[in-house]
């Protein structure tokens, strides 16, 4: 289950999971990291990120929710209007 952590001035680091893609060329890194094309019927990329959940700050991973239906909603920003 999500692990609570104490908030401080330092932001928690987002841990990226290796999704098994080919290693990127390091010699000439592209200026813009290319975005992945998401395909239906394929596994959702896993991630771990800090979250605010019912009054607490926790670390949350998508993989914690295996076995449940998940609705993952991105949005442009807090205090935006719609």
């Amino acid at each position: 289950m999500p692990q609570e952590f104490k908030p401080g001035c330092q932001r928690p680091e987002i841990k990226k999971k290796d999704t098994g893609g080919a290693p990127a060329e390091v010699q000439n890194p592209p200026e813009e990291v290319e975005q992945k094309m998401i395909r239906v019927g394929k596994p959702a990329p896993d991630f771990t990120a800090p979250a605010y959940y019912k009054g607490k700050f926790v670390m949350t991973s998508l993989s914690e929710y295996l076995g449940k239906w998940i609705l993952l909603c991105f949005y442009p920003g807090d205090f935006t209007f719609v």
Partner: peptide, 15 residues
């Protein structure tokens, strides 16, 4: 920022 993307993921972790 992130655009308004919404993903339905099944119990096996499949989109």
């Amino acid at each position: 920022v992130e655009t308004r993307g919404r993903f339905i993921i099944d119990p096996d972790g499949v989109i």
